[in-house]
């Protein structure tokens, strides 16, 4: 016997197989087209499938029928690239606090009806169906989400010790994958959690101190320019965030912002 992993594997969920579901999916031809919810029936879904594998099954059928498959973003399919993300029954990334690609069909029951919509925020225009353009996030980073250190100019890595607690807290904030679920879930469509995660990450590292004031005022100015809503501390963002970025980061951002403004930092126009 050779160890063949693809064909000879029985499906351990076989006996459980056969979920039948009703999907209501937002279909929109292009950025300017009008969209609407369209209903699809899908059968024989294994509980071990990921949510995106379920959509793959649907799309294979649509292609063969000569219909337009549902466009949705995804890449790594292991919860780390931040490319995937849709509203599932009114929740960003669905009922579990994870990414859409890591959501598995065992979270649903036979006969369920599932509504699937794109992230909705004017700075995230729809490209097609469920895929949106999230480059506004990159522009927020461009406004100051970095430490200016040209290649080759760095001192020895041990030159500046960093207290473990700071480094760990910075890491927690740095795990934001830029998926946009926070914006999608926020009733104000605010990008505060995303911005706060980066401000917190860099603000906690000694290397991030020189640009700390400018960073926060410029990133905030940029997120306003992009047209995101303001944060009123509702907390939907953090509850939807697949990386569990905490509300504390927002407080920290505000703290830095007030400090920066007091110190006279003003956004570049």
């Amino acid at each position: 016997m050779t160890a063949s992993m693809q064909s000879s594997v029985g499906n351990p969920g076989a006996e459980k197989r056969g979920m039948n579901l009703t999907l209501r999916i937002w279909r929109q031809q292009g950025p300017t087209a009008k969209g609407k919810m369209v209903t699809y029936k899908i059968t024989d879904i294994s509980p071990d499938m990921s949510f995106l594998e379920m959509l793959d099954v649907l799309n294979e059928q649509l292609i063969l029928q000569g219909d337009d498959p549902v466009a949705f973003d995804h890449d790594c399919r292991e919860g780390i690239c931040g490319m995937c993300g849709v509203m599932i029954n009114g929740q960003a990334h669905g009922p579990q606090q994870t990414t859409t690609c890591q959501l598995h069909m065992r979270s649903f029951k036979d006969g369920d009806s599932i509504d699937i919509e794109p992230w909705r925020a004017s700075p995230f225009p729809v490209i097609k169906d469920l895929a949106v353009d999230r480059r506004a996030f990159d522009r927020i980073i461009q406004a100051g989400g970095y430490i200016s250190v040209p290649t080759g100019t760095a001192p020895d890595a041990h030159a500046t010790p960093v207290p473990k607690a700071d480094s760990d807290a910075a890491f927690d904030a740095a795990t934001c994958i830029g998926c946009g679920a926070c914006v999608a879930a926020c009733p104000n469509a605010s990008s505060m959690l995303f911005t706060a995660a980066k401000v917190t990450h860099l603000g906690l590292m000694p290397q991030g101190q020189p640009e700390r004031n400018d960073r926060v005022v410029n990133m905030i100015a940029q997120q306003d320019r992009e047209g995101f809503g303001g944060c009123t501390n509702i907390g939907e963002c953090s509850a939807a965030c697949p990386k569990g970025i905490s509300m504390e980061t927002i407080s920290r951002l505000n703290h830095d912002l007030l400090g920066a403004l007091r110190a006279g930092a003003r956004p570049k126009s």
């Binding site: 250190v149 001192p155 500046t160 480094s167 760990d168 990450h201 860099l202 590292m205 991030g208």
Partner: peptide, 12 residues
């Protein structure tokens, strides 16, 4: 060195 200077939060 470069990564640390960029603020990469390596385990410490």
């Amino acid at each position: 060195d470069q990564a640390v200077a960029q603020g990469v939060p390596f385990a410490r």
